[in-house]
Design a protein around this nucleic acid. Structure first.
Length: 223
DNA sequence: GTAATTTGACCTGG
DNA sequence: CCAGGTCAAATTAC
């Protein structure tokens, strides 16, 4: 039951991935313990290390993936089998999502390409679907959907899902692996993983999920 | 000319 | 069967 990502990763890269994930798990556990205490000394430094670890992991996975894709030669749309075509319609699951509510549609630092618009039942305004511009060039899986909530004052709900693995980072300040905090600004509210709006609880929920995610990969195997 | 957007058709999960 | 997500041809923008 390995993920396609892991299947496309060489044993050398897999070793690196596991080392990075183990490191990420260790750092996340430390951060979780740290946040439980009233004084968060050193938490910021730790967050930087954790993000670095996950970025390195994603980078390794991404490089392994692209080489396999090139050799397969199955990217031609006209030769897609019915099964392949159906695969493309598979809906996003309950994967990691960041929901941002904002009054402005300012540039979030990524290049987006609109691929659809849909009138939603019981919704006053249509929903707009965007994918990363570099989806096909670099296999970036990031998506977002934007829905207007109200007209006056204008309010939009923006849901991000999938990670940016593309290499275009116009704004250095928001290059850290789509960390939820990257989207925060003065006039927006960000909700993580459908949890409550309590920041303290969010931190714990977020960290728990990170540890859970890493645990999902069987780190004891292969070694 | 290419790239992005629009929009109706198509597909899937519930 | 239907609502929501995606595709892709036609259209528009640059």
């Amino acid at each position: 039951m390995k993920s396609p990502l892991l299947e496309n990763t060489s044993s050398c890269n897999l070793e690196k991935v596991i080392v990075e994930l183990n490191r990420g798990r260790e750092l996340t556990n430390r951060l979780r313990e740290m946040i439980k205490k009233p004084v968060d000394v050193g938490a910021e430094d730790l967050v930087g290390k954790i993000m670095g670890s996950f970025c390195a992991t994603l980078s390794i996975l991404n490089s392994g993936e692209s080489t396999e894709e090139d050799s397969s030669g199955s990217s031609c749309k006209s030769t897609l089998s019915l099964k392949d075509r159906r695969e493309r319609y598979k809906r996003r699951r309950t994967l990691e999502t960041n929901i941002k509510v904002t009054s402005t549609l300012e540039d979030d630092g990524h290049a987006w390409r609109k691929y659809g618009q849909k009138q939603i039942l019981n919704a006053k305004y249509p929903r707009n679907y965007f994918r990363c511009t570099h989806k096909f060039e670099q296999g970036c899986q990031a998506n977002k959907l934007v829905q207007r909530i109200q007209e006056n004052p204008p309010l939009f709900r923006i849901t991000y899902y999938g990670h940016h693995t593309c290499k275009s980072f116009p704004k250095v300040s928001q290059m850290i692996c789509d960390s939820p905090n990257d989207y925060e600004d003065s006039n927006s509210v960000l909700l993580n993983f459908n949890s409550t709006n309590n920041n303290y609880n969010n931190h714990h929920h977020f960290l728990d999920m990170m540890v859970e995610t890493i645990d999902f990969v069987d780190l004891s195997s292969e070694f």
